[in-house]
Design a protein around this nucleic acid. Structure first.
Ligand code: MN
Ligand code: MN
Ligand code: ZN
Ligand code: ZN
Lengths: 143, 143
DNA sequence: CCAATAATTAGACAGAGTCCAATTCCTAGA
DNA sequence: TCTAGGAATTGGACTCTGTCTAATTATTGG
């Protein structure tokens, strides 16, 4: 007996997920959300574009970028900045860090609850933390 | 009486600095190193380009990019990936983290010695850490 | 001084992301 | 059911960062 069922994201969950983040569900938005959430993977805009238009073209580049930005603003996804050439979008919004394999570009999640960061300096009074990004850059040992 | 004199980088230090990193000093490389080290600032390639060609054009875009990459390979500078649109180059190679003011793009150093990061998972046997990047993203409090 | 090598260069090119005006879609009300 | 108007989508031009290449220029050791 499982105490926590693994969340499965199906296409027909997407409209509710979108609405719960104050986003009007449309065909394109549902497809883009489904690309990210069904895979639970870190995808670039270009990868989202290819996934969504795999069978037949139906979503423009402008819409992919508009939509990812909208999801971001509404807090439905996160962005991960590790590769200087492209942004990755992350359907996992729970507090977590990243392990980045620099050669392959593979990104792995690290639960933030098991990590403690201590000794950070106080922020100036008029500043507030928006987020703390911890990235472990790893590479395959040579030879 | 100061126990530690603040390091001042002058144009005529640059050739030795370059040589100490196994880099052949040339006019362009000296100018680019001087742009970074005299300011001790985090600069984008484009900013370096503008600084170096401020008085009169003498260094091409290709050379700026070639040279920054060379400095990086030789471990003379670091790169900082926080902004999705451009890389920052950092003349400070001592272990440190970054505070990033997302609205202005301003980057501030945080000495790594005063920060402890605990609870990171073990790496797979065939992997090695290349670096740990900790970025505190802050924004000005609204109103 | 000369030949070999190293460094620089202009400019073409590529990829990520933005922008805009025109079109299409959706929905609330009549 | 029809329609007006706001919301969303679109193609494609555009910008910006960074790469590449073949030609030129600078440096160096003999
Ligand atoms: Mn479809
Ligand atoms: Mn000069
Ligand atoms: Zn993640
Ligand atoms: Zn720094």
């Amino acid at each position: 007996m499982e105490s926590h069922a693994v969340m499965h994201y199906r296409r027909d969950n997407m409209a509710d997920l979108l609405r719960s983040h104050d986003i009007n569900p449309t065909h394109q938005r549902i497809e883009i959300a489904y690309a990210l959430f069904s895979r639970q993977a870190h995808l670039s805009a270009d990868q989202v574009m290819m996934i969504v238009n795999d069978r037949h073209a139906e979503t423009s580049k402008a819409t992919v970028y508009n939509t990812l930005k909208l999801f971001l603003e509404k807090g439905m996804i996160r962005e991960v900045i590790v590769d200087p050439s492209k942004v990755f979008y992350d359907p996992n919004i729970s507090p977590h860090h990243h392990l980045y394999e620099v050669d392959s570009g593979e990104l792995t999640d690290i639960d933030a609850h098991q990590v403690r960061i201590e000794g950070l300096p106080e922020l100036p009074e008029n500043m507030e933390t928006e987020g703390i990004d911890l990235i472990i850059r790893v590479r395959r040992k040579k030879a």
